[in-house]
Design a protein around this nucleic acid. Structure first.
Lengths: 218, 218
DNA sequence: AATAATTTTTAGATTAGTCTAAAAATTATT
DNA sequence: AATAATTTTTAGACTAATCTAAAAATTATT
């Protein structure tokens, strides 16, 4: 049996290692999990013994195929529950994370397949992140950061990099949601702030904001 | 913070003590939780220290008001999730228990209040058991065991005592569900088996079955 | 009321996950 | 290449929840 804690470490390694490929450092995991490096070392040894991770002393960890499978399944559950919370229970996109962190550990294949169907087989969550299908396949979206868009580009907002409550509330306040159209009007060379045109207003956003918003150029 | 294990013990004490009133023995809890009496003693001490239970050595435990509140909240969550699984995700009533056992530990007030609304404020779960409202009030239903009904009584099936998968499947197989109407035709004095008339068939059921089926005499 | 049977508690050990502090290895800097 | 800084690991300890085996208390039986 895999424990909730093990699942959380696997998920952290998956995310930090850009979906399980790269090696992840002990300290990076410790920071992500808000724990101490020594605890990480212990756990990483265990994950390795159980066949979920590849670990060599002082060299960091990566996930095995099995570990990746587990990680993707957790991500799938997390994102499906987020859709449920927003679409069915009227949560806003900045409220879902904490609850989904709990729900992602519920173990029942039937529950997830039925939930998927009930939600109409959604392909992305409320933050625009892709939902792996039941086989673990993830649909790649060709999105770029708004900070990388060129002046004159017509864009549609398709996701966020940072999904912290503060950032999402900032977007809400300024009328930016998934699917919102915007045009890049001007880039200020001094601070890399960007002027964008929304439906009925212009807005100046800092480089930091633009660095956390994914768009599709249309 | 209350742990999942503590919640499970509180729930067990609540159910065994007929909703928290009576004292419950260490062995009874051990049996219910499938653990050893010594483990129960330890946990019961902890629950007492934390203010959830009243405990005196060798005298058994009962729940404090706080403990009862916690128990009722878990029961509420369990039963709401069961309704969700059956009504929205097409689970059958014999499949819901295991998953609800996990879901009942998810901590989020908003989740439960929104779920309650989403489900249309149901008053009983798929087995006919009452769902406490958000204040913890439980609607009493005046139900009796089918084994206590008199010959000639017209009844409606309103709940089950045993909600094991085997029993529920037996009921399914014989066309008995919540809301099903039936008439008590005959009681066999030898073994207390009962002949009942359903919509389009007569059925002989053992005393053991009749002892696990709640009905309302109409 | 004494003894037997049962229940409950205690004592001490174990496992999972965590921590601090010190040691070892790696990486960066002169 | 030697030293300094940083990262990682080890060693030993702690808490929560569990267990076994033995002791203590309660309950049942003669």
């Amino acid at each position: 049996m895999i424990t909730q804690t093990e699942e959380n470490y696997i998920k952290a390694i998956y995310h930090l290692g850009k979906y399980g490929a790269n090696n992840v450092s002990t300290n990076a995991i410790a920071k992500e999990m808000e724990t101490k490096a020594s605890s990480v070392t212990d756990m990483v040894k265990k994950l390795s013994e159980k066949g979920y991770a590849n670990y060599r002393k002082y060299q960091g960890v990566s996930l095995t195929e099995l570990g990746k499978e587990i990680a993707i399944n957790i991500v799938r559950k997390h994102r499906l529950w987020e859709v449920f919370l927003v679409d069915k229970l009227n949560f806003s996109w900045d409220e879902v994370h904490e609850v989904a962190e709990q729900l992602e550990h519920i173990k029942s294949k039937k529950l997830i397949s039925q939930l998927d169907e009930f939600l109409g087989f959604p392909v992305h969550d409320p933050h625009g992140d892709p939902i792996p299908d039941h086989m673990g396949n993830i649909k790649k979206v060709d999105k770029i950061l708004l900070s990388e868009a060129k002046v004159g580009d017509d864009c549609i907002c398709v996701g966020v990099q940072d999904s912290s409550s503060e950032f999402l509330k900032y977007l809400d306040k300024n009328g930016i949601a998934l699917g919102t159209g915007l045009k890049v009007c001007h880039r200020e060379p001094f601070d890399n702030s960007i002027t964008i045109r929304l439906k009925d207003q212009e807005l100046i956003i800092s480089n930091m904001i633009a660095n956390n918003l994914f768009v599709k150029v249309s």
